[in-house]
């Protein structure tokens, strides 16, 4: 990699604000401006993380959590993507019948359903996956529907006037134009899946990142609490980044914009 002024500027834009934020945070902690009793300093968080990494507990907890989030997310995507496409424009009547119900169900609060899932599925693995599934399904559904609805009408009229069939319309027009929405929906859902790890693992888990945080919270180990949160945030960002890379590779027809 050539290290010229351009990559430097890029680096500055990418990480500058975060570095500044962490520096201010550390400064606030070590100067005593932020009370140590409930704000852990970045250094102590790194120290805790290093400890976790060394004794292998990080791998143990992360692997369990990632798998849970993955199962929930995959299940949600398998259900929501086809459903969203159908709702978005294929079957208008289908949408009319199901949309109100889905809007209604979408408002069912996962924390409120927490008790219900516990009753139905017990405290095993399935109830945690069910909770993650429940929160991951809505962003995908919403965005898939929105994506199909936001397809430029002229493109559809043009394709149809040239005698394109329904399958061709789906493959050549609808999927490419709605892919940006679809990907942002999947990205959001993956983020939410990680997000819900904490409440999902509150229901009687003995391992996992969410459990780590809950345990630290109950035992009032503030640096551990922050360390657990940091890992989840990092995983969330990593997933986000992966999705963005995919998105860039697949949704490459859109022109970049300069304001």
């Amino acid at each position: 990699m050539k290290f010229n002024s351009e990559t430097l500027a890029d680096l500055f834009y990418r990480g500058g604000s975060i570095v500044l934020f962490i520096l201010l945070w550390q400064l606030g902690c070590s100067s005593g401006f932020l009370p140590m009793t409930f704000v852990a300093s970045p250094l102590s968080i790194v120290e805790t993380l290093w400890q976790y990494l060394k004794d292998g507990s990080l791998y143990k907890h992360a692997s369990v959590s990632v798998l849970r989030a993955f199962y929930g997310f995959i299940l949600a995507a398998l259900v929501a993507v086809p459903l969203g496409f159908m709702l978005g424009g294929w079957f208008k009547n289908f949408e009319r019948v199901f949309n109100p119900l889905l809007v209604f169900l979408g408002q069912f609060n996962p924390f409120a359903l927490f008790s219900v899932f516990l009753l139905l599925f017990g405290i095993g693995e399935f109830s945690k996956v069910a909770m993650i599934f429940w929160v991951a399904i809505w962003p995908i559904l919403l965005n898939a529907t929105l994506g199909v609805k936001s397809v430029e009408p002229n493109l559809i009229k043009l394709a149809r006037s040239m005698g394109m069939g329904k399958i061709g319309l789906l493959l050549k027009i609808v999927i490419p134009s709605s892919s940006a929405f679809l990907f942002s929906g999947l990205r959001m859902a993956a983020g939410t899946a990680f997000f819900m790890l904490i409440p999902a693992e509150m229901m009687g888990a003995s391992r996992g990142l969410g459990w780590l945080i809950i345990n630290a919270q109950i035992n009032y180990q503030i640096p551990k609490l922050y360390a657990g949160t940091t890992i989840i945030v990092l995983f969330g960002l990593l997933i986000d980044k992966l999705f963005r890379i995919f998105e860039k590779g697949l949704v490459n027809w859109k022109e970049a914009q300069v304001i």
């Binding site: 834009y13 990418r14 990480g15 604000s17 975060i18 500044l20 934020f21 983020g191 997000f195 904490i198 409440p199 945080i213 919270q217 609490l225 922050y226 657990g228 949160t229 989840i232 945030v233 969330g236 960002l237 986000d240």
Partner: peptide, 14 residues
């Protein structure tokens, strides 16, 4: 925007 994305990613639960 990276900082805003990071802050938005922090779980309010934690």
């Amino acid at each position: 925007s990276p900082l805003l994305a990071l802050l938005g990613n922090i779980n309010p639960f934690a």
